[in-house]
Simulated assay, not measured.
Amino acid sequence: MKSTLFAASLLLASGAHAQEVEMTPTAETAQPAEEAAVEAAAALTIDSPIADLMADERAKAVVDANVPGVELHPAYDQIKGMSFKEVQPFSGGAITDEMIAAIASGLAELS
C-alpha cells in the first residue's frame, strides 16, 4: 500500500498524468455464473470441510441425501470445519463408510 501511494505521489510530483484504463471482462476472463458454480462444486470433495459442502446448494443436496440434518446436529459448530472423513471416527458409527462413499460419489457427479 505504501509503495503504491509513493509511486502515485511520484507521478503527481513529476507532472505525469495517470491514464484511466477501463477494465472490462474479455471472453477469456468472463465466466457465466452457471459455469462458475460447476467449477466450485467440482472443487468440493469428501475431504472438503462440511461447512463448505453445506454452503454450496448442489453439494448440500448430496450431503442431505446421505446424512440428513447434519446442520441441525448439536455439535455442528464443532465439526463444520472438519471433513466427513475426519468426523467419522468420532461419530460412534453414525457416519458409515457407505455414507462417505455415497457423498464422495455424489460430489464427483457434480463436476
Rank of each mutant, 00 (worst) to 15 (best):
P49I: 07
S105M: 05
G69S: 12
N66Q: 10
P68W: 07
G15A: 03
H17I: 14
A37N: 12
L53Y: 04
A61F: 05
V62A: 02
L10E: 06
T96K: 04
L5S: 10
L11K: 02
G106L: 05
Q88R: 14
L110M: 01
T4V: 11
I50L: 15
G81N: 12
M99I: 10
S3C: 03
F84M: 13
A104S: 14
S9W: 10
A37L: 14
V87E: 02
V87K: 01
F6D: 07
T26F: 07
P32S: 13
I50D: 08
L53Q: 04
L5W: 07
L5H: 10
P32A: 12
V38P: 08
A8G: 02
S9M: 13
A43Q: 12
I46Q: 09
L110Y: 01
V63L: 09
I79E: 01
T29K: 11
L5M: 10
N66W: 03
A102P: 07
I103H: 00
E86L: 02
A18W: 08
V67Y: 13
L10T: 04
S105D: 09
E28F: 04
P25H: 11
P32K: 08
L10S: 02
V62T: 03
S3F: 09
A16Y: 12
A51K: 15
F6L: 09
V87L: 12
G15F: 04
D97Y: 01
E98Q: 12
S48T: 11
L44V: 08
G81H: 06
A33Q: 09
A94M: 11
A37K: 14
A33P: 02
G92M: 05
A16Q: 11
F90E: 06
L107S: 00
Q88W: 07
A36R: 14
E98M: 04
A40N: 11
A18I: 12
G81E: 08
A51T: 12
L44R: 08
G81T: 07
A42F: 01
H73S: 06
A59D: 04
S91F: 10
G15L: 03
G92V: 05
D56E: 08
